[in-house]
Design a protein around this nucleic acid. Structure first.
Lengths: 138, 138
DNA sequence: TTAATCCTTATAGTTAACTCTAGGTCAAGT
DNA sequence: ACTTGACCTAGAGTTAACTATAAGGATTAA
């Protein structure tokens, strides 16, 4: 079976080898095998697992919690419920994050048009006697 | 004009007084006035400005960059272009973040259904002979 | 007036997630 | 044989963003 070096995996996932070794140290990759002399041998499935880890990371999940999940995976079917619950919670969490970003977007877009108008007028003064709340400070 | 104490502002914005003082130290609130004895007096407009700061923070903007923006605000009309460009860049950035989260969401949802099926079957084995790529490791 | 409850500064400590260095091993090429 | 470059570990250093502590000053309520 084809295997990959830590350098190859780092390139593939846009991570550094330092980061991968750090993840390993934190217990995120107990499944990665080694040669007799200690060099890591990554399988295709290990890279897939790392993609899942990156996915969880991108939801803002801290590494220690990701480790819990990895441990549950090693523990087998007894932890299916925990893992299901975890992903359901992640789902709700990501939905909330998207909503939050959409709210943020509204204010950002307001600022874009505020500055567009000001830029066209050459001065922010144009907004100064706007008292009806269409502008947001500053 | 009505003013607010640091404690009131902290409560209003769901921040701690430590955080607000930290922001001040980092130069994010040069507009906040003080009493003769040094106590901060926040105006309504200062709270609005802090909301904008929180908005920028929620886009993932580091505090040092937010400080640049605050400095530009103090510099007046000469910096309108920078500020406009900054918000346009933030807009693109937030759009990208939302897209990223939507991609993340797809994998998370896949995992939810993967574990739902496994949970119903009582075992992950149910997915083991699925070779057509509808499952994602682990 | 005295106690409580704010506020202040300066400075130290914490946490997460890297990021790097030093010193060493190993396999391939010249 | 030797050099090059990628790998290894242990452990130190970095950065951002808080978070807390110590020591003290001001304001209010009994």
């Amino acid at each position: 079976m084809k295997t990959f070096s830590i350098g190859e995996v780092a390139k593939e996932l846009n991570l550094t080898v330092y980061t991968l070794r750090y993840y390993d140290k934190e217990g995120l990759m107990p499944f990665v095998e080694r040669t007799a002399s200690g060099t890591r041998l990554f399988k295709k499935s290990d890279i897939d697992a790392l993609r899942v880890i990156e996915c969880l990371k991108s939801t803002g999940m801290p590494i220690k919690e990701i480790k819990n999940f990895i441990d549950w995976c090693s523990d087998g079917d007894a932890t299916l419920k925990q893992r299901y619950d975890m992903f359901m919670e992640r789902k709700a969490n990501v939905e909330a994050q998207i909503e939050e970003l959409k709210k943020t977007m509204e204010l950002i877009e307001h600022k874009c048009s505020y500055y567009k108008t000001a830029l066209e007028a050459g001065t922010e003064e144009i907004h100064k006697n706007n008292k009806i709340g269409t502008s947001i400070t500053p």
